[in-house]
Design a protein around this nucleic acid. Structure first.
Length: 785
RNA sequence: AGGGGCGUGGGCAAGUGGUAAGCCACGGGAUUUUGGUUCCCGCUACCGUAGGUUCGAAUCCUACCGCCCCUGCCA
């Protein structure tokens, strides 16, 4: 009961609100609308999880709709890859797979309908003319000379466009909205353009193609989508979306909602930049394991669950933020740690000879597949695999130091360590080549420590992974790292390519234990002490194994060393250059503020201006208050009406209007209220008289503004009369104190700020009806105890 | 006559007038045959800034500041 439910994101709250009110007849229909012109990336993955997730959660469905309205960019190949990716992520669209191109005929008819209503016209202007005449951010556009063609002419021309009578670019169909609209998208947006091009599905059936804004919302309407979720940059398009849905002949009323797209540091996400990486050969392809594409991450070894969890973890909001890529790494580690078997592999081999191990002898050790110190999700923690051991073996070069630094727990001359699951060994001799490079280590082992434990109870500080030379499988190990070395690629120079990480892929030749030979490509492992790896699904072959590093293990030792290195670097005391060049100050026109609107209103309405003056002169209100009250006639009317039946101090009424009423009003226009000034005045009077508390008056006001009615009657009906009766309050206080004994202790222990908590509790216990001042006094006494 | 959005600890993010959730990162400690895992503890935020309303404001009002998006016959 007291279990904390995960907070719902704002979209889920909206959906729940609709469900509660039966807004869409209780239906939830979302859609994921990719354009089949490229590969999906992790940002799309978030959107997929959101759309399919909401449908799943609320018993709805999610359509997969390909937004294929531009024949020049789109290809069937991408349709396939997108479907693969969505399925791989774990979502199923069932029979709900659609294409915008399925609706071309219907859309055409809807366009004709708009023409017939005089709401669309054929424009003969050139691209350049259209652009110029659209105006700018601060200047209105100018109407096309073709804007007032007759319906009949438009109909004929549009039919001609469809029939292929005109060349590309010679004509377009435009919505006839408003060339002076403040939202540029509303300045007669294009609906259709001529493109004599082959479409991946409709072939050569069409030579006119609908534009996004026209096609998208109406496709939503055709499919009876209820919640059309897209990213923030489409916020400006919503007005147009609504316009088309409203004016075209469709019954459904889908609504668009926007959320912030996913941004990840140390990577790029735009299709353009990703394409550039591929086309210029900085990566091996769209499925290069360093790419943030779904295909790339799949090949890298990410799991669908890790991506879904990641999407859940980062949340859904409208704030434009950048996610720490460490969270993605956390998500995949957190999954694999609980699902994947352990195995030993040496990335950078250094030969070790156990000099006191009999020559020619070998043995097989039984090694656990899973750690037993945490639950493995959906898998047994039991199970083992045979691992050969012998006189010659390999350890990782990074596990040996000729001169051990402080804190070193690994192998060094004279130091004894454990070979995992095997024996304790001690290094006695370091063999080097002519250049002084270590080529081999000679160690002795303690036969008594077989399995890794010493009968005499002695401890070693370190445990190393290893692979015996006999039976070792050679393997190519692709050590992947972040594609970019800067959190915001391109921040310095403007070109992300300048920040490519030269070590995003390092290929190593190493060895792995033979047990993995039996597993299919695509199997994921934890290479103990090294990281999570997957055998590459396209390049790994029996006898020529290839593994991709998915992610490292957390590495506390490396972190300590980094810190030590940083500390050393810092010694010279050089202040780091503030390299960030001052941003070019963009000249932005100042926004028209609410204050300017009010001033503007008065300039246009002398009567309003007169009231503004009178409020100050006759009523003695300060300028700011008078400004707010006389900013629009409706508000001033309401205020004057209230004033006429209010006996108290006018300044108080004015303040109450400004601070309380306008907040409760929200977007509602004063003139549309189901109540009047007299009733409002009565509300404040009730507060003045002490009949209701100011707290309870908010509830009263809310009901009054919503339903209207008689304030006195409402007070009685809602039980809002102020409770100043000492006995009743004392009871309430005693109840609260008894219920929150621990809090009382804390308060008496010095947490003074909890006083507010107690007041709040008492206020709640009395439904907001308690007189706060009385509560304050009584509570002070009671808490002194 | 520009318009549309967004600002809560290092990074995310709950919160919608009554004790500022949680996650990641970071720091400590315990356990450990992975410097992994797991488990504890810490991270003592006055909520962009400044005024105001209120017994009480991250939440309501006002002004200001900062950041993002929009002038494709792309989506």
């Amino acid at each position: 009961m007291s279990e904390r439910e995960p907070p719902r994101n704002f979209l889920e709250q909206i959906v729940e609100g609709h469900l509660a009110q039966g807004t869409h007849g209780g239906r939830v229909v979302t859609r994921f609308p990719p354009e089949p012109n490229g590969y999906l990336h992790i940002g799309h993955a978030k959107s997929i999880c959101l759309n399919f997730g909401i449908a799943q959660k609320y018993g709805g469905v999610c359509h997969l709709r390909f937004d294929d309205t531009n024949p020049l960019a789109e290809e069937t190949e991408f349709v396939e890859s997108i479907q693969d990716d969505v399925r791989w992520l774990g979502f199923e669209w069932g029979e709900h797979r659609f294409f915008a191109s399925d609706y071309y005929e219907r859309l055409y008819q809807l366009a004709v309908g708009l023409i017939e209503k005089g709401l669309a016209y054929v424009d003969d202007q050139t691209v350049e003319q259209i652009r110029v005449n659209r105006g700018t951010l601060t200047e209105p556009g100018t109407p096309s000379p073709w804007r007032d063609r007759t319906v009949a002419e438009n109909l004929a021309l549009f039919a001609g466009m469809r029939a292929g009578e005109f060349a590309d670019g010679s004509k377009v169909l435009r919505a006839r909205i408003d060339m002076a609209a403040r939202n540029i998208l509303m300045r007669d947006p294009l609906m259709y353009r001529i493109r004599h091009a082959h479409h991946h599905r409709t072939g050569d059936d069409w030579c006119i193609y609908p534009m996004y804004d026209f096609a998208h919302g109406l496709s939503d309407a055709i499919e009876d989508i209820t919640h059309s979720i897209c990213t923030l940059e489409f916020e400006n398009n919503r007005e147009l979306y609504d316009w088309f849905v409203e004016h075209a002949d469709v019954a459904a009323r889908p609504r668009q909602y926007e959320f912030a797209r996913l941004n990840l540091d140390y990577t790029v996400m735009s299709k353009r930049k990703l394409r550039q990486l591929v086309e210029e050969g900085h990566v091996a392809g769209w499925d290069d394991p360093r790419m943030p594409t779904v295909a790339g991450m799949r090949r890298r070894g990410f799991t669908p669950a890790s991506l879904r969890n990641f999407a859940e973890m980062v949340g859904v909001t409208k704030a434009n933020t950048v996610i720490d890529i460490g969270r993605l790494e956390y998500a995949i580690r957190d999954d694999l740690n609980h699902t994947v078997s352990r195995v030993m592999a040496v990335v950078d081999p250094l030969e070790v000879v156990i000099t006191n191990y009999p020559e020619g002898q070998t043995e097989t050790l039984d090694c656990a597949l899973y750690p037993h110190d945490h639950p493995m999700h959906g898998q047994p923690t039991e199970g083992s695999r045979p691992v050969p051991f012998g006189r010659t073996l390999y350890i990782d070069r990074s596990d040996f130091a000729e001169a051990a630094p402080k804190g070193w727990k690994r192998l060094a001359p004279g130091v004894e360590v454990r070979l995992r699951y095997a024996y304790f060994v001690t290094c006695h001799k370091v063999i080097k080549d002519a250049d002084g490079h270590v080529v081999r280590l000679e160690c002795t082992y303690d036969p008594e420590t077989r399995g890794g434990a010493a009968p005499d109870g002695r401890k070693v500080k370190g445990t190393l992974h290893w692979v015996a030379a006999h039976g070792a499988l050679p393997a190519e190990l692709r050590i992947y790292d972040r594609l970019f070395s800067e959190p915001t690629p391109g921040a310095r120079t403007g070109d992300p390519l300048d920040d490519l990480n030269p070590e995003s892929l390092v290929v190593k030749r190493g060895f792995i234990e033979p047990s993995v030979a039996a597993h299919p490509a695509g199997t994921r492992y934890q290479f103990e002490r090294t990281g999570y790896f997957v055998s590459d699904t396209t390049d790994s072959k029996p006898g020529a194994l290839v593994f991709n590093r998915i992610v490292t293990l957390r590495d506390t030792w490396a972190k300590l060393q980094d810190k030590a290195a940083d500390a050393a670097d810092a010694l010279p005391g050089e202040a780091t250059e503030p390299s960030a060049a001052p941003k070019a100050q963009k000249a932005r026109p100042a926004k028209r503020t609410k204050a300017q609107i009010r001033t503007h209103n008065r300039a246009a309405d002398p009567a309003l201006e007169a009231r503004f003056q009178a409020y100050q002169a006759a009523l003695g209100l300060d300028e700011d208050t008078a400004d707010l009250l006389a900013g629009e006639a409706d508000m001033a009317d309401l205020f004057d009406a209230a004033r006429a039946s209010y006996a108290g101090d006018v300044a108080g009424l004015a303040k109450w209007f400004v601070n309380d009423l306008s907040g409760a009003l929200g977007d509602r226009a004063p003139a549309e209220l189901p109540t009047d000034g007299a009733a409002l005045a009565r509300v404040l009077t009730l507060v003045d008289e002490g009949t209701v508390t100011s707290r309870a008056s908010k509830d009263l006001l809310e009901v009054l503004l919503r339903d209207g009615g008689d304030p006195d009657g409402l007070v009685a009906a809602l039980g809002l009369e102020a409770v100043a009766d000492t006995d009743a309050l004392a009871d309430a206080i005693a109840g609260v104190l008894a219920k929150h004994g621990a809090m009382v202790e804390r308060f008496r222990g010095g947490e003074q700020k909890l006083f507010g908590f107690f007041i709040g509790q008492v206020m709640q216990a009395t439904g907001g009806a308690a007189d706060p001042k009385a509560v304050r006094d009584l509570l002070t006494a009671a808490l002194k105890g």
